[in-house]
């Protein structure tokens, strides 16, 4: 999940600065760059169990899921297909994380 979000952030950055791709420097490109970074950050917090409170872990997991889905939807409307695939992988990671470690959602 963290790796996929990290890759997504790199892709989103390339989309942001690569003039001529139709979305460069647009609000949408900035948005997905920011959201990808936040997903990576949230994923890292979950993966490293840095969030001690059970409630906070659950909240973080939900926020990360919203970030993945939202970034994926935004990527779809930006026609940023690599970013969309990365978010798909991140979603799989999130599911594995929840399945393997149900504590965040306890």
């Amino acid at each position: 999940m963290v790796a996929a979000a990290g890759v997504a952030a790199v892709v989103a950055f390339v989309n942001l600065v690569n003039s001529g791709n139709g979305i460069a420097w647009s609000f949408g490109a900035w948005l997905v760059l920011g959201s990808s970074l936040l997903v990576a950050l949230g994923g890292a917090l979950l993966a490293l169990h840095l969030v001690l409170s059970k409630g906070l872990r659950g909240l973080m997991a939900v926020l990360v899921l919203l970030g993945i889905v939202g970034t994926g939807v935004a990527a779809y409307f930006l026609t940023a297909w690599i970013l969309l695939v990365a978010m798909g992988v991140a979603l799989v990671g999130w599911l594995i994380h929840v399945a393997a470690d149900p504590s965040p959602l306890d």
Partner: peptide, 8 residues
Amino acid sequence: VQKYGFYM
């Protein structure tokens, strides 16, 4: 339609 980079 495109706005803020998003395609409709």
